[in-house]
């Protein structure tokens, strides 16, 4: 080379980039996506496609035409938001509602705060809640269409958590089993298989894309709170296993609460954040009017992140 480069140190860089991190998250979502498509069929594929494509396109358009800074477009991050949004919707959601969700997630929740890294709330979760309050009927219609794989005991009508009102706490507890761990029809599409979600989470932790503390803290809090209430009155309150396996808890704890932008930076901050989510989830489930509260809990805790970051810092060298 004729002229050489000069820059401050360091002169080498790790292979990890924003896009490679997002690629890893997409890879981690693959097992859960595959299971949901197998069980729900074409309808689920349509939702995934509409959500992912519209999220990427909307972000690209806003960056290019509204902010006029094409350099900051991150297709990977938009794709992750799109996939997570799709996984947080029931399979019966009409495509136009998915589209509205995508516009809200990217346009309002993410880009209006300045785009990548600037948003306060998790875009996919905020969009899901927005759709839930705007279209309560469509968003709680859990009728499952025929998928590519026939299910031995397919049922429709209510989610596992919805069963609590029908069967009572004891009856619902009985539903938590090996089967619900493998697949669990009813509810949002991405919630279908705890096993697939956990496999993706383990992949992310092993690849050091995310740290495990937030997720573990949520699981621990939910288990402990449920254990205490269940011990007090098993007929009124469902037990730890049921609460861990049902609803959006695993999806939320593994993929939504661990979103970089909207979670605390430090390990202990993450533990506190996870505790807050777990506690709020259980309070909403036990005492709230909605059967499920993972989304609300994550959104509420998103707001506390700046405070948590202020209070919790990593251990510094040579300082008490």
């Amino acid at each position: 080379m004729d002229k050489h480069i000069v820059s401050p140190n360091p002169h080498i860089h790790s292979a990890v980039s924003t896009e490679s991190l997002m690629r890893d998250v997409v890879i981690a979502l693959v097992p859960a996506i595959v299971v949901s498509v197998l069980f729900y069929g074409w309808a689920e594929l349509l939702i995934l496609a509409v959500s992912a494509v519209s999220c990427v396109l909307i972000e690209w358009a806003i960056v290019k035409f509204l902010l006029k800074r094409p350099g900051i477009f991150s297709p990977g991050a938009a794709l992750v938001t799109g996939l997570l949004l799709a996984m947080n919707l029931p399979v019966s959601t009409p495509w136009w509602i998915v589209l509205i969700g995508a516009v809200f997630a990217i346009g309002v929740v993410k880009m209006s705060f300045g785009g990548l890294g600037q948003n306060v709330f998790n875009p996919a979760i905020a969009a899901r809640v927005f759709l839930l309050v705007s279209f309560p009927q469509q968003m709680t219609n859990w009728t499952a269409p025929q998928g590519f794989v026939a299910l031995p005991d397919a049922f429709s009508g209510a989610t596992l958590l919805g069963q609590v009102h029908i069967l009572g706490a004891e009856g619902a507890d009985a539903l938590a089993s090996v089967q619900t761990f493998l697949y669990n029809i009813g509810g949002s599409a991405g919630e279908i298989s705890a096993l697939a979600l956990l496999a993706g989470w383990v992949y992310l932790v092993v690849r050091k894309v995310i740290r495990p503390w937030i997720t573990l803290s949520i699981f621990a809090t939910v288990a402990i709170v449920a254990a205490i209430f269940h011990a007090v009155d098993p007929t009124a309150y469902t037990g730890p296993l049921f609460n861990l396996l049902s609803g959006g808890l695993i999806l939320g704890a593994c993929f939504m609460a661990t979103d970089y932008v909207t979670s605390p930076m430090s390990n202990w901050g993450g533990v506190v954040f996870g505790f807050g989510i777990g506690f709020l989830v259980m309070m909403i489930r036990y005492f709230g009017s909605y059967p499920e509260g993972v989304s609300f809990a994550i959104l509420l805790m998103n707001m506390t992140v700046p405070l948590i970051d202020r209070a919790f810092h990593g251990k510094k060298y040579g300082r008490a």
């Binding site: 002229k3 050489h4 480069i5 000069v6 820059s7 401050p8």
Partner: peptide
């Protein structure tokens, strides 16, 4: 005579 590849401020460049 060379290509600067650090943060684009005179202050940082001058310190380097």
């Amino acid at each position: 005579t060379n290509i600067y590849d650090g943060a684009q401020t005179c202050k940082i460049k001058a310190a380097l």
